[in-house]
């Protein structure tokens, strides 16, 4: 068969060939070239990418929930429009990422099934609740800020479709963090109650945001290999430090404080020192014991199950009606 679907690799080569393919792959990665879907790639590279891209996609669509929680209650029409557009972007970003994962031969249905049955994860940050309107701002400023710090280097990831999806996502997300900052600024400059609301949100979201960069480098299971494959470009601790350094002056300009008494500038390192992160909380949330794990997955599953009859109806309709379409060239129609 000469027609090969994008996303389906070539027939498995023999052992002798594998070595040659591996050499080509290694050379491409070393030369900072992109690996494309139908290139030969090591099984472990493919598996790592599927796991990471799927987790990223799942995070986008689960991440819609805590923010969508406030669409109906947004306190001005301008804020309502911004929030709705942002949550919509997250659905779109989930779509881009599922598409990238699909180029590796794993369908969206399979990935969603793994999410719904707990076999694939999403970012733990979305297992925290949005208790007040200020949480929408804190998510934009801190959570999206941390995500962007993580994502910008992914635009140069060695796997082409993932890198391209990230370029589009980073471009579109540039407003996400800014709207969060602006929202918090309005609260901070507002009434006493509004300012207290903003400070409370930052107090609750700061530490979980730092955890978003993952465990410390010496305890990170996948980091070294991912760096070697250029899926990842910087270590967890490097990115976390970069984020802290960015946030400190921003918090100051917001007129809000960060809830870490040990946070201070270290002249010698040229970075801010910060207090110890409570990794036991991180592990607990990861294990499923966070405040919203059950709620998030239940809602996701319910949406999928409630939509089953709709998806089926459309598929059956498509089977009944050979859809008329307009060709790409003038006068073409089939």
């Amino acid at each position: 068969m000469t027609t090969v679907l994008p996303g389906h690799g070539p027939e498995a080569p023999g052992e002798a060939e594998t070595e040659a393919f591996q050499a080509v792959f290694d050379a491409a990665v070393a030369a900072d070239e992109r690996i494309e879907p139908r290139d030969w790639m090591p099984d472990a590279y493919r598996a790592t990418l599927v796991r990471q891209i799927a987790q990223h996609a799942h995070s986008e669509i689960i991440g819609m929930q805590p923010e969508a929680n406030w669409i109906s209650r947004a306190p001005s029409l301008r804020r309502k429009a911004i929030l709705l557009a942002k949550v919509q972007d997250e659905a779109g970003h989930g779509l881009y990422l599922y598409s990238a994962a699909e180029t590796l031969g794993t369908g969206r249905d399979e990935l969603l099934d793994k999410l719904h049955t707990g076999r694939q994860k999403y970012s733990s940050i979305f297992n925290y609740p949005t208790l007040t309107w200020a949480d929408v701002g804190a998510i934009g400023w801190l959570v999206d800020g941390a995500a962007i710090t993580n994502q910008v280097p992914l635009c140069r990831c060695s796997y082409g479709p993932y890198a391209r999806a990230m370029i589009r996502i980073c471009k579109e997300e540039s407003f996400h963090q800014r709207q969060g900052y602006e929202l918090l600024l309005a609260l901070s400059r507002g009434t006493e109650a509004q300012k207290a609301m903003a400070q409370d949100a930052v107090d609750r979201w700061w530490w979980p945001s730092l955890m978003m960069f993952g465990p410390p480098d010496d305890e990170s299971a996948h980091s070294a290999q991912s760096m070697a494959w250029k899926i990842k470009r910087h270590s967890n601790d490097e990115l976390r430090q970069r984020f802290v350094d960015i946030c400190v002056p921003q918090a100051e300009s917001l007129g809000l404080t960060l809830p870490d008494p040990e946070l201070r500038w270290n002249e010698e390192r040229g970075h801010h020192d910060f207090g110890p992160i409570d990794w036991s909380e991180f592990q607990q949330v990861l294990k499923g014991n966070g405040p919203c794990n059950e709620q998030r997955i239940s809602q996701r599953r319910a949406a999928h199950e409630n939509g089953a009859w709709v998806r089926e109806a459309a598929a059956v309709y498509a089977g009944k009606h050979a859809t008329e379409h307009t060709g790409a060239r003038n006068g073409e129609a089939a």
């Binding site: 089953a308 598929a315 059956v316 089977g319």
Partner: peptide, 13 residues
């Protein structure tokens, strides 16, 4: 295209 399957096919845009 199988009519009964509920997974929608993939399209390139």
């Amino acid at each position: 295209m199988s009519g009964a399957r509920s997974e929608w096919p993939l399209w390139e845009v």
